[in-house]
Amino acid sequence: MSDDTPPPETPPGDASPSNQQPAPHPVRAALPPLIESRILDEVTHGGQTGFIVRTPDQRAILEHLRFEQNFEFLKDITAIDFLGRDTIERFQVVYVLYRIPDKLNIRLHAWLPEEVESVPSVVDLWDSARWSERETHDMFGIVFDGNPDLRRLLMPEDFPAFPLLKDYPLKGRGERRQFPLVRPRGNEMVEDAPLPYPVSIGRGMHTPEYVEEVQRESKPRKK
């Protein structure tokens, strides 16, 4: 279903994993040796190939793919956080590219260490990188060097954290309780402290209070 058709110049069957001596992926084979040597690894799953590099190297590869190999369509940029896993670095920035004539999807994964400040931006290669880099910055705190407009995109400007990091809790750190209760009193609107966060089924599922309540309720009752 997902097989991306290989370009016509390669004989069919060469890229299949069953072959004992697999030929290099046509996109990889077309890279100049200097750039090609930067590729650490190659992952293939479901007929789709991803190249793995370290972070500043992806810029040269993407430039080559854009101008020499005619990958006109940048589908997506995103990142993955591997916190607490046995990986060589913490982050991976992922680029999904598409070539229209031969309908080829490839991915480029770039390892990004936690302490490195920024990755090179690709805004000058594809305009669609503008917002996807902004969103990746918003969600992971990764700085794209060269993006002209790297404000927060989805979260409020003053939001204190980067929500898609693995060490940020799903329910946040209390940011969603920051508003006053607005209600009418007499002829004017007044602000009060917000109503207490109710603990009941269907509201605030899996809060510590809820878990405690369930544990208390599920004990056998004394007669």
Binding site: R173, R176, P194
Partner: peptide
Amino acid sequence: YTMIQGVDQF
């Protein structure tokens, strides 16, 4: 993290 858990709080 971003959803208001019931507007009746506010």
